[in-house]
Amino acid sequence: KKVTINGVEIKFNNPEEAVKFALELAKRLNLRIEFHGDQIKIE
């Protein structure tokens, strides 16, 4: 399963991993996060 985070394609074994990764990243950098299907936007 491929997920695009800020235009960067990252391959994950499952979608939950991708979501956890994105949330952790957003929390660490104190950023806002948006989900659009397989696209995750962090700003």
Score class of each variant (00 low, 15 high):
1 K>A: 12
2 K>A: 09
2 K>F: 11
2 K>R: 12
2 K>Q: 07
2 K>C: 15
3 V>I: 10
3 V>F: 04
3 V>W: 04
3 V>D: 03
3 V>Q: 02
3 V>H: 03
4 T>A: 04
4 T>W: 13
4 T>I: 14
5 I>M: 04
5 I>C: 15
5 I>N: 01
5 I>Y: 09
5 I>H: 03
5 I>G: 04
6 N>W: 14
7 G>C: 14
7 G>H: 04
7 G>A: 05
8 V>A: 04
8 V>G: 04
8 V>L: 10
8 V>Y: 13
9 E>T: 13
10 I>V: 05
10 I>W: 05
10 I>G: 00
10 I>L: 09
10 I>M: 06
10 I>H: 07
11 K>D: 06
11 K>L: 14
11 K>E: 10
11 K>Y: 15
12 F>S: 02
12 F>D: 00
13 N>E: 11
13 N>D: 12
13 N>Y: 09
14 N>P: 10
15 P>F: 15
15 P>A: 13
15 P>C: 15
15 P>T: 12
17 E>Q: 09
17 E>F: 08
17 E>W: 14
17 E>Y: 11
17 E>P: 03
18 A>L: 13
18 A>D: 02
19 V>Y: 13
19 V>A: 06
19 V>G: 02
19 V>M: 14
19 V>L: 14
19 V>K: 07
19 V>S: 03
19 V>F: 12
19 V>Q: 04
20 K>C: 15
20 K>I: 09
20 K>Y: 10
20 K>S: 05
21 F>R: 05
21 F>T: 04
21 F>L: 10
21 F>E: 03
21 F>N: 03
21 F>M: 06
21 F>W: 13
21 F>K: 04
22 A>C: 12
22 A>S: 01
22 A>L: 15
23 L>R: 04
24 E>F: 06
24 E>A: 10
24 E>K: 05
24 E>R: 04
24 E>M: 08
24 E>I: 08
25 L>F: 06
25 L>N: 00
25 L>Y: 07
26 A>C: 13
26 A>S: 06
26 A>Q: 02
26 A>R: 01
26 A>E: 02
27 K>N: 07
27 K>F: 07
27 K>P: 03
27 K>I: 07
27 K>Y: 05
28 R>D: 05
28 R>E: 10
28 R>A: 08
28 R>S: 11
29 L>K: 02
29 L>A: 03
29 L>I: 05
29 L>R: 01
30 N>C: 15
30 N>R: 09
30 N>T: 04
31 L>E: 01
31 L>P: 00
32 R>D: 04
32 R>P: 03
32 R>G: 04
32 R>W: 12
33 I>D: 00
33 I>S: 00
33 I>M: 03
34 E>R: 07
35 F>P: 00
35 F>G: 02
35 F>R: 02
35 F>Q: 04
35 F>K: 02
35 F>S: 01
36 H>S: 10
36 H>Y: 13
36 H>A: 10
37 G>R: 04
37 G>A: 06
37 G>W: 12
37 G>H: 07
37 G>P: 09
38 D>C: 15
38 D>I: 11
38 D>M: 08
38 D>R: 02
38 D>K: 05
39 Q>R: 09
39 Q>M: 13
39 Q>P: 01
39 Q>H: 13
39 Q>C: 14
39 Q>D: 11
40 I>K: 02
40 I>Y: 01
40 I>G: 01
40 I>Q: 00
41 K>P: 00
41 K>G: 02
41 K>A: 06
41 K>Y: 14
41 K>T: 11
42 I>Q: 00
42 I>S: 01
42 I>E: 00
43 E>L: 14
43 E>S: 14
43 E>P: 02
43 E>R: 11
